[in-house]
Design a protein around this nucleic acid. Structure first.
Ligand SMILES: [Zn+2]
Ligand SMILES: [Zn+2]
Ligand SMILES: [Zn+2]
Ligand SMILES: [Zn+2]
Lengths: 138, 138
DNA sequence: AACGATATGTTATGTTATTACGCTTGCGGC
DNA sequence: GCCGCAAGCGTAATAACATAACATATCGTT
């Protein structure tokens, strides 16, 4: 049976290269970081990376972290249909944890309904220290 | 009696100019937008604006919107000691509404405690359409 | 084959943010 | 007063992030 982690097969070459780079990385990468890693594969211009990233983000295979101007591969495809994903970003090791929370989403919906605001998308990014790094620092 | 909207008196000239510009603006401004508006007052270099913005953001007098790479004046100083502020940004008119929500903050705290993550700061930005713009479009 | 839609490659440019360096100003201790 | 420090300021240069504009290529449909 197909497993939810399977990489889609209909990606273009550039999209596959970019997603592969993100997946192989321990943490978020900027578009230019990605470009540098893919020079050996023939990529030369930022736009090649940005175009691939656009598609990957559209499909939920990657996420943009606004507070870092960087990108990560989706951790586990749990989230593609959920409206709100929160990211916990460790300032120390760069690791990114992603999670979806219905309570927060519902609360946001309540706020929006009250004020007549139509929510189109939400970014939530939490900066701090992960458990591992806290343990090491202790 | 002192009112919470009073502008602090211990700002430097550059800080005052930048905060004034933000306060006068209907929507968020980028650092370079601010710079352009302040050329007549003698400001010449991005750094002059960025330095002022750093201080203003530190003091909670202005906020940075990560998803726009832009800045707004704090709407009403209600938030300076609260950990989490959410911003609702209208894609149509640019208006930014800010609010603090204890439920969301508590929920986030719960998630963090569970995973051993130490939250240092959170950015939450909601993109969509404000009530006014929805009414106009109808 | 003709067409449209999507993807690509390339160059140039635009926008946002920081580094590095030196000068000035305000202030407490002497 | 004068020293020494901390904070602020001015300027130039550069780094980092993102898009515009245009030409070509690839693929499925008719
Ligand atoms: Zn995801
Ligand atoms: Zn960590
Ligand atoms: Zn505020
Ligand atoms: Zn609006």
């Amino acid at each position: 049976m197909a497993h939810s982690h399977d990489i889609p097969t209909d990606l273009t070459r550039n999209q596959e290269l970019v997603l592969g780079t993100l997946t192989a990385s321990a943490g978020p990468l900027s578009a230019y970081d990605i470009l540098d890693k893919l020079r050996g594969d023939g990529l030369r211009a930022p736009l090649q990376v940005y175009r691939a990233l656009d598609k990957l983000v559209d499909r939920g295979l990657a996420h943009r972290l606004e507070s870092l101007n960087a990108f990560v591969a989706c951790a586990d495809m749990h989230c593609h249909r959920k409206g709100l994903i929160a990211f916990a970003i460790c300032e120390s090791c760069g690791k990114v944890d992603e999670f979806a929370d219905e309570v927060i989403e519902e609360r946001l919906g309540t706020w929006a309904r009250t004020g007549g605001f139509k929510v189109e998308r939400t970014t939530m990014e939490i900066r701090g220290r992960c458990a591992d790094c806290l343990a090491k620092a202790a």
